[in-house]
Computed example of a mutant assay.
Amino acid sequence: MEYLSIFINSLVDLSNAMAPYILFGLLFAGILHESVPETLVTKHLGKESIASVIKATLFGVPLPVCSCGVIPLAASIKKSGASRGATLSFLISTPITGVDSILATYGMFGWAFTLYRVFTSMIVAMAAGILSNLFDKEKEVVKPKFSLSVNKPAEQSCCTTSACCSSSDKTAKFSMKKALRYGFVTLLGDIAKPLFWGLVIGALISSLIPQNLSDILSEHSWLSYAIVIAIAVPMYVCATSSLPIAAALMLSGVSAGAAFVFLSAGPATNTVTIGVVKNMLDKRSLYIYLASIVLGSLAFGIGLDHLFSSFEINPKSLLHMNEEAGMISVLSSIVMWMFILYFMTKTYLKRAKA
């Protein structure tokens, strides 16, 4: 019963922490879908090119969205025609940074650490996007070799009438109702199942993390990188809320590089995002996604330690601590679980009827 109680508490804490960002992400995705024409997304992010990856990365950097809030946004741009590489780079660059996180990082660690965090997150995101475009290309729709000539007049005559042209050429007026429906019905319906299992698995992992984590990490200086990665990848933590954790790790004796690994890999991924990436893209893109985050975070974490030691900088002198909580998160969690259980029940009933 004790373990069950710990698991339930972890699940509640995890849900409360994630729900506001997920709901905000769904709302933002719906507004984005209604505001930005699909042709614009297809034009800039649809091609399997380096340019589309760079644009997706730059677009994601300033957005104040965490690793769960980014899921519906990524799903939205993917549905609008973005390539796998662009979607993947957006998925990585967005949660690591964000305007709020950039300012908080500056306040806690200083400008040098902040610039390093932003710059390295962009490199990791771009590398993942380019690799995805190279090794996980979209399957082209095979068109029939011979097409009936009677189809051609129909295609040519589509825009010969003003009625037909007006439906496709004119920009539709913004509808908040459509935005909400797209965000909380279409997108949430797609991610409800992986979101459910991600929350459950994440709660299990969170409840199993040892209390003396900082002692373990300080005792194993080299292994601390691997230990932090093993915890950071499946664990849910936002870019801003990861800052006091990283600061606490550094104060307890963990190197700045290992703390940076947590700051980079923690917000970039979690069990929820992993499940959604697999469903939304495919296994190959998932492997590229995880490999880019893990190897990139480790490389830049080790690099940061070398920089600090070369310039004889004591990272502890940069630290300042902070914390916060609220009632909105509880209400958001209740709303989120109502949606998740509704869509999962709906799916189950459909399968039962079939």
Rank of each mutant, 00 (worst) to 15 (best):
F113W: 06
Y106A: 08
V142M: 12
A104H: 01
L131D: 00
Y116K: 07
L103S: 09
I130Y: 02
I130A: 01
W111L: 14
A112H: 02
F135C: 04
V142W: 08
K139N: 14
A127V: 14
L115K: 07
Y116S: 06
G110N: 09
F109Y: 10
K139G: 10
V124G: 02
A112F: 03
T105S: 12
I102K: 04
M126Y: 03
Y106G: 03
T120E: 03
K143T: 13
G129D: 01
E138I: 10
L115H: 08
D136R: 09
M108Q: 07
A128K: 01
F119R: 11
K137W: 11
V141D: 10
A104G: 03
Y106E: 08
E138L: 09
S132M: 06
T114N: 04
F113Y: 12
G129P: 01
T120R: 01
K139E: 15
Y106F: 12
D136L: 11
S121H: 08
T114V: 06
T105G: 04
Y116I: 09
K143N: 11
I130L: 06
Y106N: 09
E140D: 13
L115N: 09
F113T: 00
N133L: 01
A125Q: 07
T120Q: 04
M122W: 06
Y116L: 11
V142D: 14
N133Y: 01
M122E: 06
E140C: 09
K139Q: 14
L103F: 10
D136I: 12
A125S: 15
E138N: 10
A127D: 00
F113G: 00
G129A: 06
L103H: 04
R117P: 01
G107N: 11
S101T: 10
F135G: 04
E138T: 12
V142H: 11
M126E: 04
T120S: 10
K137S: 12
L115T: 11
A125K: 06
G129R: 00
K139V: 14
D136Q: 13
W111Y: 12
I123W: 01
L103V: 13
N133F: 01
F109V: 08
F119Y: 13
G107W: 03
F109G: 02
D136S: 15
A127K: 00
V124A: 07
F109T: 04
K143W: 12
A125L: 11
V142K: 14
K143L: 15
E138P: 03
L131P: 00
M126T: 07
S121I: 07
K143D: 09
E138V: 11
E138C: 05
